[in-house]
């Protein structure tokens, strides 16, 4: 467990997997000996939120639900959006590149092209999920939050096209299980004359992506959705 008084550099030395999380908060390397708290201050980042996110990412068993529920929705949504952006710009193209490199390392192994098919299918599903959240779920959540801040119960529910987050946030299990299958097919069932190192690189990336996605979905399912449900109850007394 990390604390705000620790040097950010020490934290990264201890767990470098946290680097992308720093970037999502707009932190770049070169922060010298500054504490996590000082770095956050200088960049106007909510330090408490930052450290909780860091700790949950570092330790999959740590998830301070109650504490997270205290943070305002826009802060949470902002982080989720940044995470999506990271998937679009890094993980998705990166996995594709590594897969293509792997396939190129074994010309003539046509069972590898099956993997590409499967990956494209997974990518399409993931894209649809992320895009839907960016286009509909997050704006709905932010709108609702604004209405909530204005403090009055909605007398005219038609103001909002949809009345529950339940209709927006679909299950994460489909995307999750495809990623798991993808890994398992490579690890257990794929036999081809490919370059081992290239395959290891791809698998490592897949494991990292899986961890990241799990953490992301957990924040959506266990923090964002319950918080929104609470507000909906207040705004739409049935």
């Amino acid at each position: 467990m990390y604390s705000l008084s620790q040097k950010l550099a020490d934290i990264i030395h201890h767990d470098h997997q946290l680097l992308p999380i720093l970037n999502r908060f707009g932190i770049r390397l070169g922060f010298g000996d500054q504490s996590a708290n000082d770095v956050c201050k200088s960049l106007d980042i909510n330090a408490e939120f930052f450290i909780e996110i860091l700790n949950t990412y570092h330790d999959p068993d740590y998830f301070p639900r109650e504490r997270f529920l205290d943070f305002p929705l826009p802060l949470i949504v902002e982080y989720l959006k940044k995470t999506h952006l990271y998937y679009y710009t890094f993980y998705i193209p990166e996995i594709e590149n590594q897969l293509n490199t792997l396939i190129a390392s074994a010309p003539g192994a046509n069972n590898l092209s099956l993997l590409t098919r499967f990956y494209l299918k997974f990518k399409q599903e993931l894209h649809e999920h992320l895009e839907y959240e960016d286009k509909f779920t997050f704006p709905y959540v932010l709108n609702l939050h604004t209405l909530y801040l204005q403090g009055s119960a909605i007398t005219n529910p038609e103001l909002l096209p949809v009345r529950s987050i339940i209709e927006f946030e679909e299950e994460h299990s489909d995307v999750d299980s495809k990623l798991l299958d993808f890994k398992n097919i490579i690890i257990k069932y794929l036999q081809a004359d490919y370059d081992d190192n290239k395959c290891n690189t791809l698998i490592t990336t897949l494991f990292n992506f899986e961890d990241d996605l799990r953490d992301h979905s957990r924040i959506e399912d266990k923090i964002m959705v319950p918080k929104v449900l609470q507000i909906e109850k207040l705004l739409f007394p049935s």
Binding site: N111, L180, N184
Partner: peptide
Amino acid sequence: LGIKSISGLTVYAILNKIIDTDELSI
């Protein structure tokens, strides 16, 4: 098998020649 999705099972079936892809488009 440790595979849950239908597409994943299909990949397994093709890899293990449980279905014949000569006549079918992957």
